[in-house]
Design a protein around this nucleic acid. Structure first.
Lengths: 204, 204
DNA sequence: AGAAAATAATGAACGCCGTTCACGAAACAA
DNA sequence: TTGTTTCGTGAACGGCGTTCATTATTTTCT
């Protein structure tokens, strides 16, 4: 016997995630169709629903991959030995670069919505930690008064601010920041934010 | 003759926008169905397509209304005579308040996407100016070196930063800011940003 | 006013899409 | 091998946005 069931099953899942990733990268989340991915993966339409609960769960797998790559990109963007404000700036630019170079997959992270009332599984929720993990250390240096949950919360706010600028620039239907100005605007925001954070507490 | 064509037509459009607005407010953008709105508006399914080009154009009308209300809410949130940093804080809190109290309609402003390649009409694009209109004056006081397009661009970045924090808190599927902490986090962000902006240039 | 022309409302039908399901094939257990 | 269980198949289902031949209504013309 050459193939046990487990291997076949994993192989199919793999091909489906590969195909879905390629489809999203090429045509965005809205361009992802069950009939297309299954055709690309070389299986019947119904096979998708033996491998995953539904199309949303397949997208979750793609987003999982993207988050892992994003985490690696952020890690690679910080220069060891630099001060907290420099690290913040590097992380922000790393984020901008990733979003620009992986636009549709990155956008899928934030535009995908599960049906109302259905929550993402815990293992996937936890993967989003990479978005703020690298921010915590430099932020802690800028704001030594923060720790634990409060520090993590503020790191999320810092991320959200940068993310908002990138998101609006790349997906807005109205007056948007031109792409070539995006790195500069993000830099200005991070500079202002970190400068404001740094000064805080000195005179109070 | 009691009804000319124009009046009938406007009446129908009005009822359709009303119905769509109510549906979105109740069930979100994804809960908006052509058959539901037309039933609510008391017309046949096909009538929607005599009044509007398609469902997207109807949503545009709803978003147009929401933007007008948002603009009014922002205007009402600034206290005359306050300094630039206070005004910025008031605008941000006004934005948070509007988003919380009009959650689904506010979310529709940013989650609605036209089919790939199709752009929103200019009149609707221009309506988004209310998002940054009030920011320009206080920002200009904090950064007298900025003017014209550069000033408007930076105002957009400031808005986007605040918006990002609100958006992620209210719509994220992962670790999100609890609603009761949202005003505080936004306040902290604005304080840091404005502090950083204010200090800028003094030592350079 | 009445007839003809223009326009709008109707709702059944179309095509697309996610999902399901009865069936046949394949892999395991004996 | 034979029986059993599990999986892959693709036609069919139900819901959706949109279209279109038809009907009803309003305007225009005489």
């Amino acid at each position: 016997m050459r193939n046990n069931r487990e291997e076949q099953r994993e192989g199919l899942k793999q091909r489906l995630v590969d195909a879905a990733e390629a489809r999203i990268a090429a045509g965005g989340l809205n361009g992802l169709k069950a009939r297309d991915v299954t055709a690309d993966a070389g299986c019947a339409l119904g096979a998708l629903y033996t491998a995953f609960e539904d199309l949303d769960r397949l997208i979750l797998q793609v987003n999982s991959r993207t988050l892992a790559r994003l985490g690696a990109a952020l890690q690679a963007s910080v220069v060891p030995g630099h001060g907290p404000r420099a690290v913040m700036a590097e992380l922000a630019q790393g984020y901008v670069g990733f979003a620009l170079q992986n636009f549709r997959l990155w956008a899928a992270l934030f535009t995908h919505r599960l049906p109302e009332g259905i929550e993402a599984p815990d293992w996937h929720r936890d993967e989003h930690a990479v978005l703020i993990a690298q921010i915590i250390a430099p932020l802690s240096k800028l704001r030594p008064d923060l720790a634990g949950a409060a520090l993590r919360q503020r790191a999320l706010t810092v991320f959200a601010a940068v993310h908002g600028v990138v998101m609006l620039a790349l997906t807005a239907r109205f007056v948007a920041t031109p792409r070539e100005q995006l790195p500069g605007e993000v830099a200005a925001l991070v500079e202002a934010m970190t400068r404001g954070l740094e000064g805080r507490g000195l005179e109070a």
